[in-house]
Simulated scan of single mutants.
Amino acid sequence: MAPYDKKEENHNPGKENMGDHVLILYNDDVNTFDDVINALITICQHDSTQAEQCTIIAHYNGSCEIKRGLYPDLVHLRQKLEEQSLRVRIHQLIVP
């Protein structure tokens, strides 16, 4: 049995690799559900269920987090989504 080192214990597995920014999709009155779903599948690599859920959440709540990551990675996605006339913004996560 390997010795247990409390300093190596990871209380939030995977969190450190998720990035420090989030890409938010905002509801609009321009795009159809199908347009948004197809953009999320094509650009953000969402599966169809995830894309549908994000679209519905954004429609009813006004916005939905669609991706977390490092700022440079999210800038490319934001630009591609904006080319499709989607309203998206990148926000920095505040970690206590």
Rank of each mutant, 00 (worst) to 15 (best):
A2G: 11
A2S: 15
A2F: 13
A2W: 08
A2Q: 14
Y4N: 12
K6S: 09
K6P: 11
K7E: 13
E8G: 02
E9C: 02
E9I: 07
N10K: 12
H11G: 00
H11W: 10
H11N: 05
N12R: 14
P13V: 13
G14Q: 12
N17G: 10
N17W: 04
D20S: 13
D20F: 08
H21C: 13
V22C: 09
L23T: 04
I24K: 01
L25M: 06
L25T: 01
Y26D: 06
N27D: 15
D28R: 08
D28N: 15
D29M: 05
D29S: 10
N31V: 03
N31E: 03
D34W: 03
D34T: 09
D34K: 06
D35I: 01
D35W: 00
D35H: 06
V36E: 03
V36N: 07
V36L: 04
I37T: 06
N38A: 03
N38Q: 14
A39Q: 09
A39I: 01
A39R: 03
L40T: 02
L40Q: 02
L40D: 01
T42V: 02
I43M: 00
I43R: 00
I43N: 00
C44Y: 00
Q45M: 05
S48L: 13
S48M: 12
S48C: 05
T49S: 13
T49K: 14
A51N: 07
Q53A: 06
C54M: 12
T55E: 06
T55C: 15
I56V: 15
A58E: 10
H59M: 08
G62K: 10
G62V: 09
S63M: 13
C64N: 12
I66R: 04
I66L: 06
K67T: 02
K67D: 03
K67W: 07
R68K: 15
G69P: 14
G69M: 10
L70I: 11
Y71G: 01
P72M: 06
P72E: 12
P72R: 08
V75Q: 05
Q79W: 03
L81T: 03
E83C: 03
E83H: 04
E83M: 07
S85Y: 07
S85E: 10
S85Q: 07
L86W: 04
R87Y: 07
R87H: 07
R87P: 00
V88G: 01
R89K: 12
R89Q: 08
H91F: 07
H91K: 14
H91R: 11
H91E: 15
L93S: 06
L93G: 01
V95S: 07
P96M: 09
P96Y: 09
P96T: 07
P96S: 11
